[in-house]
């Protein structure tokens, strides 16, 4: 019974973690789909947003969850600026290696992380909100429950918000005109131009949106996690693993990929060891590359068109 309890608890915390991962992956998949480049500064953008949330909390006492509404627009603007003044010029430049854009985002990430170190020092910081220790236990609600499960309020709230933002994104992309234009650009930018879509504007917009989404994810993460300048790199990798696992440029794939990765990671840390969680992450990544190169999106596709 204890075995089952541990397993279920691991599954629950994995799903909660996965919900946040999905949000991180969603931002990256949006940028990758439209721009056809990998944004290796993704985690660093999240780090910037987390610092915004941290300072808003420490100096003004604004709750990190409310900081979403300030950090996201700020990162949206930052994303648009990066796209407009750094990435667009590079796309036009003739060079031997087409991967220049990816290396460029590495440079942007390095600058952001290093500036954060200079200004805020490498101290570990966190936002100790006063409701941080609230936890719900299953036995409180169902006294005779044979097993015990617990959910922390913070995790539940973060998960809830992340699902809400994901749904809002889905609604935006599939129901609004701008969303449809973004999707058209990601499908075929030449055709989109012919349909009268301002492709350059859509690119800036989607880079900004991707940054805004990951900023939201950062704000949801900060009450649960701690913050330091070098934190970005690991989240960039997580976002990338999710995008590969989910299928390139597929939003549903990114969500499922995030959940799968969250569960998988929490399983490896429970059953193999904490330190091995990153290895678990990358083995799932390499397994996805070998056995499921199209990602989860290709499975969904196959079912839809298979008959």
């Amino acid at each position: 019974m204890v075995q089952l309890e541990v397993f279920l608890q691991t599954l629950v915390s994995g799903l909660l973690l996965g919900g946040l991962y999905a949000l991180i992956g969603l931002g990256m998949t949006l940028i990758m789909g439209v721009m056809k480049i990998i944004n290796l500064a993704h985690g660093e953008l999240m780090m910037v947003a987390m610092y915004i949330a941290y300072w808003l909390f420490t100096l003004l006492g604004i709750d990190p969850y409310l900081a979403v509404f300030i950090a996201s627009p700020a990162l949206f603007i930052l994303g648009v600026l990066i796209q407009k003044y750094l990435i667009t010029p590079v796309i036009k430049v003739e060079s031997i290696l087409p991967e220049n854009q990816v290396i460029l985002t590495v440079g942007i990430g390095m600058v952001l992380a290093s500036l954060a170190t200079v200004f805020f020092k490498s101290d570990y910081r966190s936002t100790p909100v006063d409701y941080a220790s609230v936890t719900w236990y299953l036995t409180d609600y169902w006294a005779n429950s044979p097993i015990e499960l617990s959910i922390s309020l913070l995790w539940a709230v973060s998960f809830f918000f992340s699902i809400m933002i994901t749904i809002a994104m889905w609604f935006f992309l599939s129901r609004t005109d701008i969303g449809k234009s973004i999707r058209a650009t990601s499908q075929d930018s030449d055709a989109a131009i012919l349909m009268g879509i301002n492709v350059n504007r859509m690119r800036s917009l989607s880079f900004g949106l991707g940054a805004a989404i990951v900023a939201a994810a950062g704000c949801l993460f900060i009450p649960l996690y701690y913050l330091y300048p070098a934190l970005g790199g690991q989240f960039t990798l997580i976002a990338f693993v999710i995008t590969i696992l989910g299928g390139l440029g597929s939003n549903v794939g990114a969500i499922i990929g995030g959940l799968v990765l969250g569960v998988f990671e929490s399983m490896t840390s429970t059953y193999i060891g904490m330190g091995w969680a990153p290895v678990g992450r990358f083995s799932i990544f390499i397994a996805a590359l070998i056995f499921l190169p199209g990602g989860i999106a290709s499975l969904l596709h196959r079912r839809r068109f298979g008959k």
């Binding site: 750094l86 430049v93 290396i103 590495v106 440079g107 942007i108 390095m110 290093s114 170190t117």
Partner: peptide
């Protein structure tokens, strides 16, 4: 402490 920023800046400059 700035060395990453300087390297990153140099990288951006070179690529553009």
């Amino acid at each position: 402490a700035m060395h990453q920023a300087i390297f990153g800046g140099l990288l951006i400059f070179i690529i553009i």
